[in-house]
Design a protein around this nucleic acid. Structure first.
Lengths: 132, 132
DNA sequence: CTACATGCAAATGCTTTGCAACCTA
DNA sequence: TAGGTTGCAAAGCATTTGCATGTAG
């Protein structure tokens, strides 16, 4: 199936809209809950399938961060993230991609490097406040 | 429960031994399969519980890499990894930890940074060969 | 019309957990 | 002998999938 075979269904369009407007990095279930307000009969499976398709089309990005569920990013461009170790909230890390990193490894590994992922962990403001 | 309350059972000892000898970064199930050869009656649940305990004790490290199952590292010290996107094999990345990275973010984020994770993705030699 | 997409429910895969029996310190 | 630990099985949870029906192009 080629890209042109994709159909812009109500569901796909709504999911994309919701993600673009959310501006955070929600999980499939969070997206499902919001989309359900507009399309009450949508199923979670459809949400997963469409997020997958949209990422194949390069319109969004799937974030598979360490030790947490999948999150989805309206911005398909490479960038880094910070994850709150308490509430799992994810935000962008305000630091430019380090493109030379992969070259640094070129001579010292037998792997053929194709990319890298940098993820910061920390406490978001809300969780810092509520520390018991 | 304090560290001194921990008991060094046959199971715990064997799991630690196997991991130290493996020198790779196996999954719980891979460890289970090897340990079973020495302790045929051990259960997968016990393997998970002990790996968790050993990491609490700082004797090993749990790796929660993006989009893959948990892996366990006999070396509790911070270091980076490369993951094969085809077979999921994980090896160490021969590059020194960048300790200043977190400071770079200090002024530009509202998060209280506590750490970071850098993960390279690529093709291991075996998978590079077998590319169809 | 055709074949991609959906809703539903069941299945999957990894990991965790409740519990009674067991064993280490 | 106290209480941490085990084996077993069941539960948990995010995600995927099979299938009959629906619908975009």
């Amino acid at each position: 199936m080629t890209q042109s075979d994709r159909r812009m269904t109500q569901q796909r369009k709504t999911i994309l809209d919701v993600l673009k407007k959310t501006k955070t990095h929600p999980s499939a279930d969070e997206i499902y809950e919001i989309v359900k307000q507009k399309l009450p009969r949508i199923s979670l499976g459809t949400v997963y399938r469409n997020l997958e398709v949209l990422s194949e089309l390069g319109m969004i990005q799937v974030l598979e961060l360490s030790g947490s569920l999948k999150r989805f990013d309206w911005d398909p461009n490479k960038h880094y993230h910070i994850r709150c170790i308490r509430c799992d909230r994810v935000e962008n890390a305000p630091i430019a991609p380090m493109r030379q990193l992969e070259n640094d490894l070129y001579e010292s590994t037998v792997f053929e490097i194709v990319g890298h992922n940098l993820e910061f962990t920390g406490l978001c403001p809300r969780c810092t406040e509520n520390m018991s």
